[in-house]
Design a binder for these strands. Structure first.
Length: 552
RNA sequence: UGGGAUGUAGCCAAGUGGUAAGGCACGGGACUUUGACUCCCGCAUGCGAAGGUUCAAAUCCUUCCAUCCCAGCCA
C-alpha cells in the first residue's frame, strides 16, 4: 500500500462531502506518448498513477497520448504495454488512445470557435513566435484575433478538409496575450500536419496540441485526478480553461509531482536516444540504461523497482536520488530470491597437494542459507580447483584472512585447507596456489572448534562451466551528467561494461531453476542475458555486487 | 514588481502550534561455512536567512535569500 502524500491529501478533500469529486470513484491514468521506451522515471509515474487508484479502490487507465503522428510508432505501444505489465499493473479493458477522441476534440474546437474563444490565425510560425512577447514583455495580439467566428468556423472546417498546406494556418485559443503565463498567450490548439498516423492513417490532416487534447482525453475517460510532473504546473491554468469552456462530461483535476532523478545517469528520452543511435550502448535494452527493458535485461526485479519508488515517496521537491539507494533495493530483493551458486570470475588454479589425483567427492550446498526449504544442490570436488585470484596474497595485507602461506581457509561446503605456497612463472606472476586439505574438516566443519575466519568460493576444474560474464557499473563517471559543462557523451564511464570472456561457474547452474537469477557467492547477483546467452555460450549479467565492507 | 514552483542531515522524506519519524549513506560493535544477510549502537540544540506573534513556532505573520520550470505549429 502506498504511504500517504500530498496528492492523497488533495484527493481526500475532493472525495469528501462537498468536495469536487464527492461520490465518484477515484480514477487516474498513465498517459505515455508512444515515441520511445519507458524508463525508471516513468516507473515512478506508473507507481503513482496505478498505486493511487489502488489505494482508493479506484481505477487507472493506460492511454497512449498519440496526438503527434510525426513522432509516434505502434512498435512503442507494445513495448510500453509490456513494461507496465512487467511492473505488475493491470488496466483491464481500459486501454485508450488519445486518437480515440479526435472527433470529440474537433467538435469541442468548433464549440470554442462558436463561443468566440478560438480563432483561425494566418500568422506563420515565425510570426507567432515573434508576437508572443518575452517572459517580461506581453505579446501582441494576432491580426486575425478578432475575425468573425463564422469565418473562423468556415476556415477551420476547410483546414480539416485539406484546403491549406501544412503549417500555413492554425487554430488558436483566444485567452490573454499579456498573461504572465506564456501558455495563456493565445496558444495554438490545432495545427495542419500531413503525416500518416499510426492508427488513424490519413483520416486527419489536422492534429490537436497537447494542451488542448489532454484535458479532453482526461474528461472523456472520466478521470478524476490527472497526475503529472511539475513541468506541467504552469499548463494547469490552460488545462482548467479547456475543461471550463468545452462541454466535456467530467471535471478532472491536474496535480503535479516532482519527476525522478537518479545520479550518475540521464533520464531524458532525447539523450538516451543519442546513446542508442550512436552505438554507445547496445540498444534501448542495454543493461546499463535506466530504461525498464534495460533494467529487466540486467536482472532488476519489478518488485525492487516498486519498492524503490515506494520508499522514495512523492513530493514536489526537485530530487535526485542516489544510485546507491536503487542498488540497495535490488540487493534486498535479490537476497530473498536468488539461488546461491559459486562462480569464479578471475580464476587461478588451486591444487590440493595431499588430495589424490583420481579422487572426486560430492558436497551439498544449500540454495539459500536462510531458507532451507529452497533446497540444495550438489557440487563436485577434486585435487584441481579454480579460485578467485584475489583470494590469495603471498604477502597478506592487514586484516586479510583469505589464503596466504601458512593460513587456513575454508573452501565453502568442502574442506578446510592450509595454504602451503604458490608457483610462479619466470616473470614472477603467480600461476598456481598450493594447499593441503584437512580430511577431518569434511563439509567445511572445523574439527575441535578451531576458528577459521575465511571462507572462500571455488569450482572444480574438471566439470565447471565456462561462461561469459558482463560486469556493469555506473554509466557515467560524474554525479550529474546533465549539469556538467562538457558534452555528456564524454562523461561516460569507460568501465561501465567489463566483459569477462571465460568465467568458471559450477555446473549445477545449468539445471537450477531461479527465475530471478543467482547469487554468485561473495560476488554479487547475476542474471542470464536474455539477448546474448546461448546454450553453447552462456552469458551472465551482473545485476549488482554484494555489499563489501572489507577495508585493508 | 513577468508568471509558476521549491527550500527539514551527504541523499530521499515524515511532520498540519506542544518541543525534529523512518530509510539510504556513513562510523562503531555482535553474529557468521558468503568480509553477504541479520542484529545492536551512534549520526540535525536544528528545519534557507532575519525579524515578529505565542506560555510554546519547522509549522502562523513580515521581509529577504537561493534554486528550478516556462517564450514548440513537442508531449
Amino acid at each position: 500500500m502506498m504511504a500517504g502524500n500530498f496528492i492523497h491529501d488533495i484527493i481526500d478533500d475532493d472525495i469528501s462531502e462537498g468536495g469536487r469529486h464527492f461520490g465518484l470513484r477515484v480514477h487516474t491514468r498513465f498517459p505515455p506518448e508512444p515515441n520511445g521506451y519507458l524508463h525508471i522515471g516513468h516507473a515512478k509515474a506508473i507507481y503513482i498513477d496505478f498505486g493511487t487508484a489502488k489505494k482508493y479502490g479506484g481505477l487507472c487507465n493506460l492511454r497512449m497520448d498519440d496526438t503527434n503522428p510525426s513522432k509516434e510508432k505502434t512498435t512503442y505501444v507494445e513495448a510500453i504495454k509490456e513494461d507496465v505489465k512487467w511492473l505488475g499493473y493491470d488496466w483491464d479493458d481500459r486501454f485508450y488512445y488519445a486518437s480515440d477522441f479526435f472527433e470529440d476534440m474537433y467538435l469541442f474546437a468548433e464549440e470554442l470557435i462558436q463561443k468566440d474563444l478560438a480563432f483561425v490565425c494566418e500568422q506563420t510560425a515565425e510570426e507567432v513566435r515573434l508576437s508572443r512577447g518575452t517572459l517580461t514583455q506581453p505579446g501582441t495580439p494576432s491580426p486575425w484575433r478578432d475575425r468573425d467566428p463564422a469565418e473562423s468556423l468556415d476556415l477551420f472546417r476547410r483546414m480539416r478538409a485539406g484546403e491549406f498546406p501544412d503549417g500555413s494556418i492554425t487554430l488558436r485559443a483566444k485567452i490573454d496575450m499579456s498573461s504572465g503565463n506564456m501558455n495563456m498567450r493565445d496558444p495554438v490548439i490545432y495545427r495542419i500536419m500531413r503525416a500518416t498516423h499510426h492508427r488513424t492513417g490519413d483520416d486527419w490532416l489536422i492534429y490537436p496540441m497537447y494542451d488542448f487534447a489532454h484535458p479532453i482525453e482526461d474528461a472523456m475517460e472520466h478521470i478524476t485526478h490527472s497526475l503529472c510532473t511539475i513541468e506541467f504546473e504552469d499548463h494547469r491554468p490552460l488545462y482548467d480553461w479547456v475543461i471550463e469552456n468545452c462541454s466535456v462530461p467530467s471535471n478532472p483535476r491536474q496535480i503535479e509531482f516532482a519527476p525522478l532523478g537518479i545520479n550518475y545517469t540521464v533520464m531524458s528520452k532525447r539523450k538516451l536516444r543519442v546513446m542508442v543511435e550512436e552505438g554507445i550502448v547496445d540498444g534501448w535494452d542495454d543493461p546499463r540504461l535506466p530504461t525498464l527493458c534495460g533494467m529487466r535485461r540486467r536482472g532488476y526485479t519489478p518488485e525492487a523497482i516498486i519498492k524503490f519508488n515506494q520508499r522514495n515517496g512523492v513530493s514536489k521537491v526537485p530530487s535526485t536520488v542516489e544510485f546507491d539507494f536503487l542498488e540497495f533495493c535490488v540487493r534486498e530483493d535479490l537476497n530473498e530470491r536468488a539461488t546461491r551458486v559459486m562462480g569464479v570470475l578471475d580464476p587461478i588454479k588451486l591444487t590440493i597437494e595431499n588430495y589424490p589425483e583420481d579422487m572426486t567427492e560430492t558436497f551439498i550446498v544449500d540454495n539459500h542459507p536462510q531458507y532451507p526449504d529452497q533446497g540444495s544442490h550438489e557440487i563436485s570436488f577434486s585435487r584441481h580447483l579454480w579460485i578467485e585470484r584475489d583470494d590469495f596474497m603471498e604477502e597478506p595485507a592487514r586484516k586479510y584472512f583469505r589464503l596466504y602461506p601458512g593460513n587456513e581457509v575454508r573452501l565453502r561446503a568442502a574442506y578446510i585447507v592450509r595454504c602451503t605456497g604458490c608457483k610462479k612463472d619466470e616473470d614472477g606472476n603467480i600461476t598456481e596456489v598450493l594447499a593441503e586439505y584437512i580430511p577431518e574438516s569434511k563439509g567445511g566443519v572445523a574439527p575441535d572448534g578451531q576458528k577459521v575466519k575465511g571462507t572462500i568460493h571455488w569450482v572444480n576444474r574438471k566439470d565447471c562451466l565456462n561462461a561469459e560474464v558482463h560486469l556493469y557499473d555506473k554509466l557515467f563517471n560524474v554525479e550529474d551528467p546533465d549539469s556538467e559543462g562538457a558534452e555528456y557523451k564524454d562523461l561516460i564511464n569507460s568501465e561501465s561494461l567489463i566483459v569477462v570472456p571465460e568465467a568458471k561457474l559450477e555446473s549445477a547452474i545449468q539445471e537450477l531453476e531461479s527465475p530471478s537469477g543467482f547469487q554468485f557467492m561473495r560476488l554479487g547477483y547475476f542474471k542470464e542475458d536474455s539477448k546474448l546467452s546461448t546454450p553453447d555460450k552462456p552469458v551472465f549479467n551482473r545485476v549488482v555486487t554484494l555489499r563489501d565492507t572489507y577495508k585493508p
